[in-house]
């Protein structure tokens, strides 16, 4: 079973991740009454990019060229920390939730540094906004993970996933607060409306897309894959920690697939129903999420589990 979990973790993470944004895009198109692209569109894009030549804005240093590799490497490691259906193979990397936060930060640093290297205003505008969001998103992520860690009293993701199984957690308000807070985390990390608009082609409104503007070819493919893998990481985590699951390995795997699909549908629905919010108002939303998480913690500490 663990071997299968390992296979899904690596191959699924690498190969299935691009399916998630594709799925969201195609569901969104259906909801909006368009035919839209096939869910496999991201794969075609990646294949196309993989064959293209690279671009090298002048003057850049090795920082610009190294950034996509570093971003992708940090994302792969983050992927290896996330258990699948409650199982995690031993990669000697541990399974700590807060290490995951650090790895995502490393990817953010590399991308922001590459924006400075190109000196492009649009890239820097985007990463400045991204980092501003992170100031509010990182506490939110830590608090959401803290709430998920309460039942297990451990930040080990495997223990957290096990403790969230069954119906017990659902009787506690802390679980609901944690789920809502994590939903906001999903919106930020995947760069979806109302925080960011993944479909924009207008440089002035870009947040996550901005730093990618200068890249081409395999560099861009690595970055696009990393963005898709971030979808995978937060959606799988969301399904494992906050959505109903339980039973044996196969049952959990089924729950996981259903959970991730449901979350994709949720993202598509939010994107259809919600317009993008003013950039300066997004931090307020995230800070509200933090307060909600603190309220959840208070309810837990008053009531116990």
């Amino acid at each position: 079973m663990t071997a299968l979990a390992a296979a899904i973790q690596v191959l699924g993470g690498l190969a299935l991740a691009p399916l998630l944004p594709g799925l969201v895009q195609s569901m969104k198109a259906r909801l909006q009454g368009r035919r839209g692209p096939s869910p496999l569109q991201p794969y075609r894009e990646l294949r196309r990019l993989w064959g293209k030549s690279l671009a090298d804005p002048q003057p850049t240093t090795v920082v610009y060229r190294l950034a996509p590799c570093l971003v992708a490497a940090a994302t792969v490691l983050a992927l290896l920390l996330v258990p699948i259906a409650g199982r995690a193979p031993d990669w000697s990397l541990g399974n700590d939730a807060l290490v995951l936060v650090g790895l995502l930060a490393l990817a953010r640093f590399a991308l922001a540094a590459s924006s400075w290297d190109t000196g492009s205003g649009f890239a820097l505008m985007g990463s400045g906004r991204d980092l501003t969001f992170a100031v509010f998103a990182e506490p939110l992520l830590v608090l959401a993970l803290l709430l998920a860690a309460l039942p297990a009293a451990s930040t080990d993701l495997v223990a957290m996933a096990a403790a969230a199984a069954g119906s017990g957690p659902w009787t506690e308000p802390v679980h609901w607060c944690g789920a809502l807070a994590f939903a906001l985390v999903i919106l930020v990390e995947t760069g979806r409306q109302p925080i960011d608009n993944p479909d924009t082609h207008l440089e002035l409104t870009m947040v996550h897309e901005g730093p990618l503007l200068e890249y081409a070819g395999r560099d861009l493919a690595l970055l696009e894959w990393s963005a898709a893998a971030r979808h995978w990481i937060v959606l799988v985590l969301g399904a494992e920690l906050f959505l109903p699951h339980g039973g044996g390995f196969w049952a959990q795997l089924g729950w996981l697939a259903a959970g991730v699909a449901a979350l994709c549908a949720g993202l598509a629905l939010t994107e259809t129903a919600q317009a993008k919010m003013r950039i300066l108002r997004a931090p307020g939303l995230l800070a509200g999420g933090c307060l909600l998480a603190l309220a959840g913690l208070a309810s837990f500490l008053i009531g116990g589990l």
Binding site: S53, L54, A55, D56, P57, Q58, T118, G119, S120, G121, F122, A123, E203, L213, E214, A216
Partner: peptide, 8 residues
């Protein structure tokens, strides 16, 4: 890698 100016 094609040398290009940064996009503005």
């Amino acid at each position: 890698a094609a040398p290009v100016p940064a996009w503005a």
